[in-house]
């Protein structure tokens, strides 16, 4: 679900400060659903530019927080769209990302709680 090595690296990058890490997780927990909804909306409207950019942002954040599978889904969408393909199953692809977010979100909350105990 969450690659622990990525979290450890991020933790080290911010000076092993649990409060900073929690703050960043919370920021992603707020921003993540917005991006997921934006991705679905762009897919429905077949706005592939917005869809690619949203997938890029979500991918970047997912990788920072070790959400490998979520990152991989987003990367796949981004790559396809960057290559100029216009997928017929855009909505389904967005839904896959949405479903993955449902898995990532509780894992991130668990992580925040774990580091909250350290703070």
């Amino acid at each position: 679900m969450i690659d622990r090595r990525a979290i450890d690296r991020l933790y080290e990058t911010v000076g092993s400060d649990p409060e900073s890490l929690i703050e960043m997780i919370e920021s992603f927990l707020e921003e993540g659903p917005v991006l997921v909804a934006q991705l679905a909306g762009a897919a429905a409207a077949r706005d592939f530019v917005l869809m690619r950019r949203t997938a890029h942002s979500l991918k970047s954040n997912a990788r920072d927080f070790g959400a490998t599978r979520l990152g991989a889904h987003c990367a796949e969408i981004e790559e396809e769209l960057r290559a100029g393909q216009e997928p017929d199953d855009a909505a389904r692809r967005a839904a896959t990302v949405g479903a993955e977010w449902q898995v990532v979100e509780p894992a991130l909350r668990a992580l925040a709680a774990e580091f909250g105990a350290l703070a």
């Binding site: 911010v14 400060d17 703050e23 960043m24 920021s27 992603f28 942002s57 954040n61 920072d64």
Partner: peptide
């Protein structure tokens, strides 16, 4: 960076330095 979370990560990493 347009992503608030990404900005926050870079910010905190820099402040730590």
């Amino acid at each position: 960076d347009d992503s608030r979370t990404s900005r926050m990560i870079v910010n905190k990493a820099l402040q730590q330095l």
